[in-house]
Design a protein around this nucleic acid. Structure first.
Lengths: 335, 335
DNA sequence: AGCGGATATGTTAGCGTTAACATTCGGAGT
DNA sequence: ACTCCGAATGTTAACGCTAACATATCCGCT
């Protein structure tokens, strides 16, 4: 391994100039003769000099580093948001300090302290669900942006998927295909995501002057529940011609059970999922039409707004990011 | 937001002592009168003082920060390793700088430079496959540990799953269940993971004095390929009584096709997957027996060895981490 | 020749912290 | 009373870098 790292002092003395001149040359400032700059650059290259970001940060008060605090990065949704954010930051000169609190408030506090101590320029808090989460922004001293899981303080900046709009798109698509007896199967009621999607279903149906086929079926975010719901629904209301499921897992179970009952998807029953979790949505048969929340874009957008907030141009409030309908075979036109 | 952050200077003057005394009091050193320490601690609390990690790092030359360089964190395998590492670090006082090179060598170089400039104490490089990857350790000046994807330099420290051993366990389990006509369906041949698992199959079978049922079927890591392989295999060799699949995706497709052909899993054909990707392995019917590579543990172990390497106790070479067989219904005893 | 001004280079303070060393202050020992 | 010692506290120099300011050099102009 290498010995001591080269400092600007080493570069300066190798180039035969003062450290101030070396600094100017390295930072591309004007008042340096071209030949001198050449010499300094050559010396830096020779010593493979890397400016010490700590010293620079200490002086400037800016670390060009942001914290990414996630409650549950093991979860399905944190990851893409995280990637989008990392992408937006990494493209520039920012670095990302990753902290996973594992859903533990104590650990979160601990991480927050560590991040603050490292003088991050800003913070992105990634939620594990779209439910409101406690704000951490109070007296923090650095700008914070919330992604996926919004802060309970309306003065904070939050970015969340527009689940109501996503559900509206899904149901409108079914209506446009001529389906009229549309059922809805979703996850647990304590998820805001589930409630929002139900609201979207109601909105779209009432605008079209339709009645929902039966009550919303609340359950779990699992394939098992999807299969179970399908069996119940085919029994109780054999006349349905479309189902909007609150997640791809539910939808995958649903189509499987429908197939086994000898009904055809999409001919007899069109099915739409939610999340566009590709391992499920593209591998079921038929492949699932589904709503994509564009989580990477959401993460990227949150990161960009964090930049803005660091520059003092914050945009308070909850921002709803549009979803996108990905059409596949499970709603192929039955024409 | 808060104004300027409090420094140790503010704490010292509020407590009416010199900064040296304040520093000693805050760092729990001996030569401070108890009453003085109390006063300093109270002042620090009052100002919610957080020591500036930059200043500390500049002085000590240690940042208590490590870089986590991943080639493809979107991938299936990087994430758990990353989490395990984050876990091991986060438990202590270390922070993790996350960089995703997106498989781009230029970007990787860029990130490497940024990490070095931030004076990380060490580096974990997480691969996207178990194939050898180019070493980055040369002349880096900080210890590096490779996780999942090993370095091509045998002097480096690498941690990889023992895929040969994993496959041996899987096949031995099938043999123990009394199966004798065992086939193997796996992914693309350019994956070392696939080749290692094939080697494990051959090893276990020859030790038991058995012949493999037909040639290994190379394909893709997809459900589609699993279904296709099942159809081919049931046609060409209807006498097989067990299949070991190179991934859960392949296995999920396989069991689905077997069921559709009216053969029963596990009664007619026992099936084992690989990866223990829970959304697949627990949701297929029957749930899959599969090999778990313990990736979180692998990540955590890599992190712990990075600590050791930072302390100068490196452990060069490729370390193979044992896998674990997770037994579920797809190999339930046919007794 | 002497001066002003532009250009290039050097000197130094300071960012916040810690460690090494210096100083002060009581009290015990002679 | 004086020294000596240890405990408690204070002063200062780094760490590596940049920005503000100071100095040097050279040129053309009056």
């Amino acid at each position: 391994m290498a010995g001591r790292r080269a400092t600007i002092n080493d570069v300066a003395s190798l180039a035969g100039v003062s450290i101030a001149t070396a600094s100017k040359a390295l930072n591309g400032r004007q008042d340096v003769r071209a030949s001198t700059r050449q010499r300094v650059l050559a010396a830096a290259e020779e010593l493979s000099f890397q400016p010490n970001a700590l010293a620079r940060g200490l002086l400037s008060g800016q670390t060009r580093t942001v914290g990414l605090l996630t409650s549950d990065s093991a979860g399905r949704f944190g990851i893409p948001v995280l990637l989008g954010a990392e992408d937006a930051f990494g493209a520039g000169e920012m670095a990302v300090l990753l902290c996973d609190a594992r859903g533990d408030a104590i650990r979160e506090q601990h991480h927050l302290r560590a991040l603050l101590s490292r003088r991050v320029d800003g913070l992105i808090v990634v939620g594990e669900s779209t439910n409101l989460r406690p704000s951490v922004s109070r007296d923090l001293g650095v700008p914070v942006v919330y992604a996926y899981g919004p802060s309970d303080d309306p003065e904070d900046v939050s970015f969340v998927p527009d689940d109501v709009g996503g559900a509206v798109m899904a149901v409108n698509h079914l209506i446009a295909l001529g389906r009229r007896r549309i059922a809805h199967v979703t996850g647990p009621e304590h998820y805001k995501a589930a409630r929002d999607r139900v609201a979207g279903v109601e909105l779209a149906l009432s605008e079209a002057g339709l009645e929902q086929a039966g009550e919303t079926l609340w359950g779990a975010w699992s394939q098992r529940w999807g299969r179970h719901a399908a069996e119940m629904l085919l029994m109780a209301q054999p006349e349905i011609d479309a189902v909007f499921c609150g997640s791809d897992q539910v939808a995958a179970g649903f189509v499987e059970a429908v197939r086994e009952r000898g009904r055809r998807v999409p001919d007899d029953i069109a099915v739409i999922g939610y999340d566009n979790w590709e391992v499920l949505s593209t591998e079921t048969r038929p492949a699932l039409t589904t709503v994509d929340m564009n989580l990477e874009l959401l993460g990227r957008t949150a990161a960009q707004h964090l930049f803005a907030a660091i520059d003092g141009r914050a945009t308070p409030g909850v921002h709803r990011m549009p979803c996108q309908l990905v059409i596949r075979d499970s709603t192929a036109s039955s024409a």
